[in-house]
Design a protein around this nucleic acid. Structure first.
Lengths: 225, 225
DNA sequence: CCTCGATGATCAGAATACGCATGGGGTGCC
DNA sequence: GGCACCCCATGCGTATTCTGATCATCGAGG
């Protein structure tokens, strides 16, 4: 796991970093709120440990700010303040857990790992990738093995949905609801047609097909079988 | 959110339930470990509050059991034991958070909501497991001892039903109603045929058969006998 | 211990449902 | 008006399901 520590007490920070590294994680450290906020917004972490009292930008503010920006990385707030109200404030600000100093390292480790376990996938992604197929959501482009693929709007949405659920079987109902926003069954082969067209573009010129039919169930996007 | 409370102290449980309901959640309660485990495995919750000390099945055991079954519902463990070692044990067992009694309700609420927030998008029970046989409902895949098994749609539904009722005897009528949605008896050996085919795929290449005939009653999925 | 009826297992062909490709018509946008 | 794009209908090929016949097994009763 990649973990960011924002803590002004040098010694405490070093101690924490050492322990987390020994447990097999990758650690970045920031010694004040400003640097911390910068790292938190520019890098991707699986979890963050944030001290509540910080020079510059305060811990709670950091959490509120990154949450406001849509970042959902789990945050463990560290504080000397143990009163219930303080804890509630910490959690309300968007913290996922709250630990009072002094704490035992074993507990912090257990909690951080519990948090991380829960969310390995959270950031609002801008690129999707499945095998050699890549989609850039911002640029609205798709390419496979470097070769550009030109898709119509509906085909794009369809492929996006399939990619977001790669490995899972996606039912027709799911597609109607999420790609077409139909909340009923149109009783036509609408989906089949679009899948067919998508296949022409995505799988036709390649050895390994990615779109697979799961008879009686739906479709799935994945490597083999 | 749907929340399950497993707590033997009637008063504490009622108090908790009341508070959570007032905060807009739906609450189920279990007064002992056995009932709790039953609800936890048969129903779907967004979060669970589990007392550590319980008559019958103990709190940690419950958490370990549901985790072993692939259930990832967030769990908040409640305990009178506040020592660091106890907390670490609680989190290691698969708990997502740990709160020591006496606690303030506001804090518990904040923590539960922090846990729920994190996984509201979590999948509704996605894997079934019986002995060495595993089924992934999302990917629609089945494997036994790591070896993939390829099933047709009806066979898949049939096996799913058997797995969801593992250990119980499943009658032909139950199968007709739930797997075929027939509400009458087709007067053919329809079911026998499909069970036969399923056996070929599930039991044929393995020492230990899992599908057993219960003469005059139906079928059952379990280890021996 | 053997026999016989009832219950369950297996097999293969027939019936069915499902998914695919294609072309045409409609709609809305430049 | 022309162009994209999207949706619908058709017919075809095939995977899946169901049926009915035959064979195996079980257990009660003589």
């Amino acid at each position: 796991m990649r973990i960011l520590i924002i803590e002004d007490d040098q010694e405490a920070s070093a101690y924490l970093a050492k322990g987390l590294k020994e447990a097999g994680h990758t650690v970045d450290q920031a010694g004040n709120g400003t640097d911390g906020l910068f790292l938190a917004t520019t890098e991707r972490y699986d979890a963050m440990v944030v001290d509540r009292m910080l020079p510059g930008v305060d811990g709670l503010t950091i959490v509120q700010t990154i949450r406001g920006a849509g970042n959902t990385t789990p945050v463990l707030i560290l504080s000397a303040l143990g009163k219930v109200d303080d804890r509630v404030k910490g959690l309300k600000a968007g913290g996922d857990d709250y630990l009072v100093k002094p704490y035992a390292f074993a507990e912090l480790l257990a909690r951080i790992e519990a948090l991380g376990r829960r969310t390995s996938a959270s950031q609002p992604e801008t690129r999707l990738k499945v095998e050699d197929l890549e989609m850039d959501l911002l640029a609205r482009t798709v390419n496979r093995s470097g070769q550009d693929i030109d898709l119509q709007p509906r085909e794009f949405r369809l492929l996006e949905y399939l990619m977001r659920h790669a490995g899972q079987v996606v039912t027709r109902t799911m597609l109607l609801e999420n790609v077409w926003e139909y909340h009923f069954d149109p009783q036509t082969n609408l989906i089949d047609v679009h899948i067919s067209r998508l296949r022409q573009k995505v799988d036709k010129d390649f050895d390994q097909p990615l779109i697979h039919t799961v008879r009686g169930a739906g479709y799935t996007l994945r490597a083999q079988r």
